[in-house]
Design a protein around this nucleic acid. Structure first.
Lengths: 224, 224
DNA sequence: AAAATCATATTATCTGATAATTATATCCAC
DNA sequence: GTGGATATAATTATCAGATAATATGATTTT
């Protein structure tokens, strides 16, 4: 089975069980789950433990609950996670290099797929270019961060590998704090790097695009 | 007390209050919070509502709880947060190819890091070899799947990129159903592929290792 | 001083109960 | 019959109180 002994508290275990249930039943957003009591009986725990789990999942937006309507599957969007991790990460250090190397693996690894799809669909280049242009015109730190995240998100999205899009969104939350310390003058460099990269992709120069992206990301490594 | 917008869940409000508390007191990882009962009194709610809130925050790793030690501010790690992505994968039932390509990106992307660390630490090769040997000797489907997962897990772990380890574990869970349909005779092929790959890594032949791993994973693509 | 034992604070979980909310069925006017 | 008001029932939301499990800090033993 999955993880019988590893988890120590019941509510985490129940949360995992609920995930299995969702997979097994192939539930999608809006679908109903059994009632709390029914889940409690099914898992052999008290309603309270189910409740703690569904509350936690509800907090993240994964489940929704209402009297009479019962539990329904929600949309997984990262709003809640961003909100709460954002404040927390501001207080805790997390290995910068690990995050960076992870981003490098994922983003450069995805470029072959982006290039291929770009060759078939010109609008992909246009979209990336447009976002980068927005980044170029941005004047406040907040706008820049927003546009930069949007650019990398769009890059991942252009690969068509959706699981990686989700994972990258998560990484970006952790990475946020490093972005904030980018010197104002250096943003220009970033924009130019983006541009050279997508141009290389457009021209079928994969190696060059990979190098460009790696250099772009490794910029964060040098800074203290 | 706040009655401004009494529209939300109590536990959500409590979660927000706790966040405020952490910020206001400037608490950092490891610092203690008041006990559940004390928080309940402070916020004027029952202990249950506090509990639901702390559970939700605990799910993300923002809070940790233990008997006698009480509630402490936690250290968020990607592994914990990646659990959350599990629900994302559960709800969007991605195609075999998407999952496969995602694995290819991650696992091949990680090989340069594995090779580097292998050159510095011989035990990495030994460990991978040992697991692959276990796979070789396995005779039941369950044992084989277990060993195969262990091999790929160890591969990721050898890269030292923790965020990717967690994510790949998740991918493997959802990939499980495809593994089950591998023909008995084909496992031998897999073992040999593994072996050639780690040998290439040992000999510093990155390209060859990448090719080998890609071919190994793409085996799942051809099958129906 | 190190190891083993004990006491105690605190979370973990259960049971049972009541309130609040909302979907569905029922009824009433026209 | 149709539209709107109303009752009914299902289900979550919240509370209270109790017991079990467990990690920490104090105490004793070696």
């Amino acid at each position: 089975m999955l993880d019988a002994v590893e988890r120590q508290n019941l509510s985490d275990l129940v949360a995992a069980k609920i995930r299995e249930y969702i997979v097994a039943e192939g539930l999608k957003a809006g679908d109903r789950l059994p009632t709390e009591q029914a889940l409690a009986d099914r898992f052999g725990v008290s309603r309270l433990s189910v409740r703690e789990a569904t509350k936690a999942l509800g907090f993240l937006g994964i489940l929704e609950a209402a009297p009479r309507r019962g539990l329904t599957v929600g949309k997984v969007d990262m709003g809640r996670v961003t909100e709460y991790l954002g404040f927390h990460l501001a207080l805790n250090d997390y290995s910068r290099n690990q995050l960076l190397e992870t981003r490098i693996v994922i983003e450069t690894g995805v470029l072959p797929y982006v290039m291929k799809r770009m060759a078939e669909n010109a609008s992909i280049y246009d979209r990336l270019h447009e976002i980068n242009d927005k980044l170029h015109r941005a004047r406040s730190l907040e706008k820049r961060i927003e546009a930069d995240i949007a650019f990398h998100h769009a890059l991942l999205e252009s690969s068509g590998l959706e699981p990686l899009v989700a994972f990258n969104d998560l990484l970006q939350i952790f990475f946020d704090r490093f972005r904030r310390s980018v010197a104002t003058g250096d943003w220009k460099m970033g924009v130019e790097g983006h541009q050279r990269m997508i141009d290389s992709l457009k021209n079928g120069k994969l190696e060059a695009a990979v190098d460009e992206l790696r250099r772009h990301l490794e910029y964060h490594k040098k800074r203290k």
